[in-house]
């Protein structure tokens, strides 16, 4: 059979290429441009090579922010994933309560980030907030504007409140796709509840769970608005995560070179972790 080669169809891709160029590639290249040069305004640039990268990688401030970021993401994943799975497992599969549960679960996801931050800020205020006031009147010394531990706790709980639902909904969808026959077979085979979870539910949830963890990782690693509204990165720098720090350097101090270098490093870190995680999770799928 003769294959006619006509490559005109490629032209149809052009609009997408233009779109991607304008909203991703060109801005990224601008950042690369800034990261390699020094400027004092008026569009005058001086070549700096990798100086900014070296400076960022050696700076204690960056190390601390990265560490805080890793700690924060680690903590919220460690709480949200098991919590999300167990909530999904205990949700009803059929009956009138299904839709009630789904709506309740979806509610936090619909609230804008800055509103969540403001809500929790007021909720947690030690003198007038419901949470802050109750904790203090129960005898706990709680003040998230002054104590690093309180500030961290509040930020983590806020994120758990906002985003656990995402994991719940994804896992629930995974669970609902398991045919009844699997549960029946497990009962015939005498499987314990743990074995059912380990060998039926978890494997069937694996794909959605991978996506859920990836989404939560990326999102929490780039978290900005909620802690910015809640604590503003304080007290001191204790809740200054990477993107808050980045904005401080770029827009507060207007150090465009180091900020650009930092955002590139930041971008590569996210990319690297996502790639490594996804590769490991999907390694066995191919067989």
């Amino acid at each position: 059979m003769r294959k006619s080669s006509n490559n005109k169809a490629w032209w149809l891709v052009v609009p997408v290429l233009i779109l991607v160029a304008f909203n991703a590639f060109i801005p990224l290249m601008t950042v690369v441009n800034y990261s390699l040069q020094e400027t004092f305004g008026n569009n005058v640039f001086f070549w700096e090579g990798v100086t900014w990268f070296e400076q960022v990688l050696r700076s204690e401030r960056f190390h601390d922010a990265l560490l805080r970021q890793l700690l924060f993401t680690g903590m919220i994943l460690a709480i949200e994933v098991p919590l999300g799975i167990s909530v999904a497992l205990s949700m009803p599969r059929k009956g009138p309560w299904v839709s009630v549960c789904l709506v309740l679960m979806a509610l936090p996801l619909l609230i804008p980030w800055n509103v969540v931050g403001a809500m929790w800020n007021i909720f947690a205020l030690p003198d007038i907030g419901l949470l802050g006031y109750s904790l203090n009147s129960m005898g706990f010394d709680y003040n998230f504007t002054q104590q690093p531990v309180s500030a961290w706790m509040t930020t983590v709980v806020m994120d758990v409140w906002h985003w656990t639902s995402l994991i719940v909904l994804l896992c629930y969808a995974g669970l609902c796709s398991i045919p009844d026959a699997y549960y029946q077979a497990a009962r015939i085979d005498g499987a314990s509840a743990w074995a059912v979870f380990r060998y039926i539910q978890l494997p069937k949830m694996k794909r959605v769970l991978t996506i859920a963890i990836l989404l939560r990782f990326m999102d929490s690693f780039m978290i900005y608005t909620e802690p910015f509204v809640l604590t503003g990165g304080g007290p001191g720098n204790t809740t200054t995560f990477l993107s808050i720090d980045l904005v401080k350097i770029a827009l507060g101090q207007f150090d465009l070179g180091p900020a650009a270098a930092m955002s590139l490093i930041y971008f590569l870190v996210v990319l690297l972790i996502c790639w490594a995680f996804y590769t490991i999770m999907m390694r066995n799928e191919e067989q």
Partner: peptide, 10 residues
């Protein structure tokens, strides 16, 4: 009991 459609632990 063996069911109509295969059930295996993947």
């Amino acid at each position: 009991q063996v069911f109509q459609f295969p059930v295996v632990y993947d």
